[in-house]
Design a protein around this nucleic acid. Structure first.
Lengths: 351, 351
DNA sequence: TCATCAATTTGAACCGATTCAATTATCATA
DNA sequence: TATGATAATTGAATCGGTTCAAATTGATGA
């Protein structure tokens, strides 16, 4: 269909194509394409002619045609665990901004902490022809990881954000969780706590394992013995935090409770409120993540801040590195650790 | 490039095309395409032959080619205000599931309550060739709405979710905010409150206006006068809730404070805590939205639940209705109101 | 057995960009 | 002014599907 036919049919309803622009600017389609892609071997005046024509017919590149011929979709798939936790909400915000900066779009999918869902999502991303995948792993205990191998065998560039699956090759940008945990524990010990309960996630998960290691190391540095019952493993949500707090008190009387995220700390505080223990007068409580809410609770929460923004920036950079490399997906997996920051607030105090 | 050349180059690295499948199944490409699209005029045995071939060469349709020739992208753009509020996090979850059910993908963008960002996003969606757009409007006071008109002039099907921009044509699914507000106010009046402060968003915004109307109507039904100073207009976040609470007490001594969302109520409670007023003994507090957190606060919050899931389901259905219609984007704008639900908890009590 | 009509199947044209070998224009130099 | 080298431009081929008019097949009835 040519411009003439278009006129017949009413040009208003027909999106103009690169050929229309070429005709109007009196150059070839190849030239128009090069101008549009910012090639450096185009005369300034030619470029101007083209851009004028583009403006005149209000031309927009057809993204599908572009993707087909260039075999790039300018699209990144993000497999996100669970957006009801504001921590991950922030993360999506930052990831989106970074991806945008590269001129790409973000296709979002939620796994709700189910590896099964994550599998389906990866399948979908592969079908949708994304150029790369970001994974914020679902926290599940014994994940079946065929989808990760599938990504690798399809040579699809991907990167983990915030934590990774043990035993898989794949780059990851995350907080130095062990260090955060270490710093917090050390601080509590410095503040004369003698009996800290640590409500953790399951040790099989990297994100729990590292935090537990930090907790243990801080005690070991002081040559303080840890009893096995000081560490509890459970699900990482509010209710589990509440339940675990109850279990702690069935075992012993702690002078502080640490959890692996702020939401769990809220569960702990709810239980403490119920048994009439005051925070921090009777017991200290500390979380991890530093949610927006955490500083605003009636008793602002001592916690460990993760540098989310930086984490997202580096993860996206890493992913685009892999995309732009000739065969980036075979490069060695990189693991980047970022510095956590201890946020001391009112929920902890000197004993 | 034919199958033979592929063999030469090492078939492993070459994605197979519809022509490969056709050759292997001994049918034409047209037939393969029809089978893949579930046409009804294909013999069962032909279909089987094709599907076998598809399985054998591990064929996947190239989405870009598909989009180019069918001029559909199977993609929906979502312009979301702000994901750090868990209310919207939930919303994204539900929207994504529904869109998925239709076999589409979700392209997400965040506007952070900036209409400027929203504009850029719509531009981007148009460039990316999405098939439809969902908008959760940015809450800004005097929005410049050219992007909405742009959507309309491009005949891009779109729908608002949760609230809409006054004066624009566009379908919307939202909670009956006035009713929720009315019910809550009525309940408080029934509980003998004589002096309720209402911390609202700006009246220019539909979502505030309607809530204010509900508040007023409940009083009017009882023939109770409202003083102008009972209603405050401010930003819809935690800090503003805190500040507004302070301003309330500069004006009068309320026996209840209502806000237009739960996050603001938390700000109010933080202030009350600071001035040593107990909730609910000294004063009642009520919010709106029913966040996951709200029932878990030290004093669980009385609030109005919005039926998010249903809202998302209907909004997506509506959007796909418009997409599938011949010229759905010119249909009349529909406005759907869903029933809110009053959630009575401990933060309010009989006076 | 043959004509007719409906049900399947075919395959070339098309969607709208990118790519790159071939061509033409430009310019410095002999 | 001719020559070669370099820079800019051209346009046909290509990407991998969908579409639909035309061809083929199969079923039915005379």
């Amino acid at each position: 269909m040519n411009q003439f036919k278009k006129m017949e049919m009413g040009a208003k309803h027909m999106r103009s194509t690169i050929r229309d622009v070429a005709a109007l600017a009196n150059v070839s389609v190849g030239t128009v394409s090069m101008v549009l892609n910012g090639s450096d071997k185009i005369t300034e005046q030619t470029a101007k002619k083209v851009m004028d024509a583009v403006a005149k017919v209000n031309y927009r590149r057809n993204p599908h045609a572009r993707s087909l011929s260039s075999s790039r979709s300018y699209t990144i798939g993000l497999a996100m665990t669970d957006l009801t936790n504001p921590f991950f909400g922030m993360m999506v915000g930052h990831l989106q901004r970074e991806i945008d900066r590269h001129g790409y779009s973000l296709i979002l999918g939620m796994t709700k902490n189910s590896v099964e869902q994550e599998k389906k999502l990866i399948e979908k991303f592969l079908d949708a022809g994304v150029d790369g995948v970001l994974i914020v792993p679902a926290h599940e205990r014994n994940p079946e990881l065929s989808h990760i191998y599938q990504l690798i065998s399809h040579r699809m560039p991907f990167a983990y954000v915030s934590t990774y699956y043990t035993g898989t090759k794949g780059s990851c940008v995350m907080t130095d969780l062990a260090k955060g945990s270490y710093d917090l524990t050390k601080y509590l010990l410095d503040m004369n706590h003698k009996n800290i309960a640590f409500i953790s996630g399951y040790r099989e998960l990297v994100l729990s394992d590292q935090r537990i290691k930090g907790f243990i190391r801080a005690h070991r540095d002081r040559e303080i013995e840890i009893r096995y019952d000081q560490i509890l493993e459970t699900e990482p949500d509010f209710q589990s935090g509440y339940d675990a707090a109850r279990r702690v008190f069935e075992r012993f009387r702690p002078d502080a409770i640490m959890t692996i995220n702020d939401v769990m700390s809220m569960g702990v505080m709810a239980y403490l409120h119920e048994i009439n223990m005051r925070v921090p007068e009777d017991i200290s409580v500390a979380g991890y993540d530093d949610l927006l809410f955490s500083s605003m609770l009636e008793t602002p929460l001592t916690t460990v801040r993760q540098p989310i923004k930086e984490m997202c920036r580096q993860a996206v950079d890493m992913l685009f590195g892999a995309i732009e490399e000739d065969d980036g997906c075979r490069a060695e997996a990189k693991r980047v650790l970022l510095e956590p920051e201890l946020m001391i607030r009112k929920s902890t105090t000197l004993r």
